[in-house]
Every structure is written in C-alpha cells, then in structure tokens.
Design a binder for these strands. Structure first.
Lengths: 233, 233
DNA sequence: CGTTCAATTGATACGGATCAATGCAAGTGG
DNA sequence: CCACTTGCATTGATCCGTATCAATTGAACG
C-alpha cells in the first residue's frame, strides 16, 4: 500500500515531479510524523539529518542571535519543502506553529534518491529559486519599510498564502483568514516588538482597512488602501 | 578555440561540474561582456533574458521600493552565478559596483542546456541553497541587529569574501582589504543611511578596532572585538 | 469566580533618520 | 601651477518612530 496515493499534497509538493513507480520508491524511504504546536523539528546548528514535506499545518523557520533575540526567516505551508539537503548542518530551526503533519526522509537517503532523479532535483531547484526570491523580498521589507508597511505587507502575504476561510458571505470583497501565528510570532517575523505589531493592527482597524473579529482572525475590508500602506516608507 | 580554457573561474563557477566536451557546448552558447562601474546589467521587473557567471569584478543585486528607496539584496563576487533561470521575469536588478567581466547566456538557451545536464543543475541547486542560507543570515541582521552590529558584520563578511590585499607587512594579525562599495552602497546593503554608516565606522576607528587608511580601504586591527560588536543587539 | 496567558494600551527613552553644514580629494580649465 | 568645480565622506543638531517598561484589559478554562 502506498501512503502517497491519498496524500493531500501529492500534486503540489516536490512529489509531483515523480512517476507512480518513483513515488513508490521515495515513499519507502519516508515516514509520517505528527508535530504538536510549539514542537521543534530541527534545531539550528544541529547536524542536518532530516528533510521533508509539509502535509498539513504551518511551521516557521527561525534563527536566534547569540543574545537570544529571535528572527523568523520564513513561514512554511503545506506542500512546502523543509530542511537543508546536500549539506552537513541545519542552518536554521524549524518549529511548528500549529499542530502539523510532515513526511520526513533521512537526509542521506533523500540526497541519494534526488541525485538519481533529475526531475526531482529540477523541481527542488525551482522551489529554492522561488524561495530565494521571496526571502529577498522580505529583506527589502526588513531593511526599508516602516512598521505599518511591514504589518500591511504581512497581511497581504497571508491573505495570498493562507487558505482563505469563508468571509461574511455577502457581496463585499472582504477577504478573511485565520492567522496561524500569535502576535509574538508576527513580531519575530517582521523584526518588530509585540507591542508595535499590536498598535499597527489596531491602527489599521481604526482606519477601517481591516477588521479583527477575534485575536486569531483578520478580515481585509479595503485591499487597495492596505496595498497603499504596504508600500509606505 | 575554447575561451573557457583560460578562464580564471573555470574551476569555481558552475562550469566546474562539466566535462571538457560539455563545456565546449556551453561555451558556444555564451558570450563575454564587459560592464562599466555603475552599469546596470539586469533591470528589476524586466523580462528575464540573461543569466551568467561573474568572471571579474564585483556586482550588487538590488531592489527598490515604489517610493524609490533602495535595498541591496546581495553582493556578487567572481565565480558567482547571476540571474533568474527557469522564470519569466527578473525579480531584482544587477548593477556593477566595479568594472566587471561576465560570461552571459540567453536564458532560454541556458535553461534548455541545464535540463540536459543534471550535474550542472545539481551544482546550481547547491549554490542556490547556499545563497538562500546566506540571504537568511542577512535577514537576521536586518531584523535584529543594531547599526554597530550591522557594520561590524558587514566588515567581517567582506574580510572573508573580498580578496585580501597585503597588510602592513609586519607580524601584526591585521587584515586589510579594499571596499568595492561606496558608503551609499554599504548603507543600502545594511538598511541604514550613509550618515549612520559613516558614524559607525569612525566609532570603530576611534575604539582602535579598525583603521581607515583611505575611504576605500579598511584594516581590521582587532578581529575579536569586531566579532563582539557584530553580535550586538 | 478566580486563574492564567495573550493582547492591548499608556508613558517614556533612545537609536537612527533627517536636515544642514563642512571637509577632503580628484579632476578641469585657465 | 593654482583657482574652481564636483562628488563623496564626515560631522553636528534636531526630530521622529519604535523599543522599552509598566499597567490594564480580555478571553479561555478549571
């Protein structure tokens, strides 16, 4: 029996570049793993032993300075690839933001398999290039944008990447979604403090650009003005 | 005749993953190009038409916000790869910081060639993964470090990556190098202003950690204390 | 109803941006 | 060879945005 057959990310993860036979071979190398919210899957600086795909849930990639301040380097959604293949050490930590399900491989086994399957490597290269572009976009944000700009950009990214949950239902072009991160996580991602994030959110709310039904949910009420904020100096 | 035979980066650029025959084939697709200091090779947002290798000189990768503020996303040294293969648009600009010599390929031709040579793609994947790690390290810097920490980190990175030029010569463990960037470029890279960069440099000088023989050169006099500064909040 | 934990709100301090002036070296033309 | 220009870099004074410190509110849960 092949666990991949009913996998929800079968067509969107790197696996999509494999034939049924190849998939079977890869499947025999991997195993499923559940992660609880808050659980760390990979530790920064550890030997790189695992790589894998996210099947369900949201994780973060993060790194800490010597004095303990944390910076989140990226958010990882279902069908994204995790880990550092072809290298001895994990350069960053991976932590589950929600309960999550991942499909993991021993790095050495994955590396070997990948080298024998150029299509897989090509897919991985494409993903890595895209991720590099995305990361550089965040660099621009961290280097040059104001707190408002950062929060607005973040909300737009989430509106695009997080699975939208049904809005108010009427004809309005409202976009609603749940935040998989708490305020502290957002602050770590944007290079701000929790207080500043909070103030910016209430600021956007008071301007009527967004609504905050509850602490985990966001509704974008005026996407155009939000875009305007996202470009702020 | 094969221009690659006497190429100075033959063994360190992506070309190192190719046999002599393959190299000949790739060579027939490429052409050499000279760039003057300040010249832009790729424009952010343009159709991605070119990729290539840096043979000589230093370039920067940069992106601008809508209101014109610029952020440098990376520095590109000889044997580094330039451009965005496998994608229709260039997401960032590439500008020469010094006079430079690059070896360019039409993207479509390169893409096709790469897909037929898994070794080359593997090498490119490795490079991209390394570059992604490096970029994320800069994210940590931009998000969480003070001005002093940023400048110190920058100097350390340059001390490692730029070709060292002979120090004072005596037994001191002084490390000297030339900056390929002006103050404005440094500011753009670190997400600071030119004034702040200047103040931090003179600060480090006044503490005796570095010396500034002239505006383009730096001598690190106390690497340990510089490391200390680099970790500053 | 009290406990707990996260988020919000308020008051203040500080770091870096901004605005403005000066300094310094490399051309340029008389 | 020397005045003049030009383009960076440095230095100074002030302002503003975000961090920091501290208190309050609000929701989830026993």
């Amino acid at each position: 029996m092949n666990a991949c057959a009913q996998c929800t990310v079968r067509e969107t993860a790197i696996c999509s570049s494999l034939s049924a036979d190849e998939l079977g071979a890869l499947n025999s190398l991997g195993r499923h793993q559940m992660l609880r919210r808050g659980q760390t899957m990979v530790w920064q600086g550890d030997e790189s032993l695992l790589v894998g795909n996210v099947i369900e849930g949201v994780l973060k990639l993060s790194s800490s300075t010597v004095d303990g301040r944390e910076q989140t380097l990226g958010i990882i959604f279902p069908s994204d690839f995790i880990g550092r293949p072809f290298g001895p050490t994990a350069t960053h930590s991976v932590v589950a933001l929600t309960d999550a399900q991942v499909c993991t491989f021993r790095r050495s086994a994955f590396d070997e398999f990948a080298q024998q399957h150029p299509h897989l490597e090509h897919n991985l290269l494409q993903r890595t290039l895209t991720e590099l572009d995305r990361t550089r976009q965040w660099m621009l944000l961290l280097g040059r944008k104001s707190a408002t700009g950062r929060v607005a950009s973040f909300l737009m990214e989430m509106a695009n990447r997080a699975a939208p949950c049904a809005g108010a239902g009427n004809g309005a072009e409202t976009i609603g979604f749940d935040l998989p991160l708490g305020r502290q996580d957002i602050a770590d991602l944007l290079g701000l403090t929790i207080e500043t994030v909070s103030r910016q959110l209430t600021g956007l709310r008071d301007q009527g650009i967004i609504a905050i039904p509850n602490r985990r949910a966001i509704e974008v009420r005026d996407m155009e003005r939000l875009e305007g904020c996202a470009e702020e100096a």
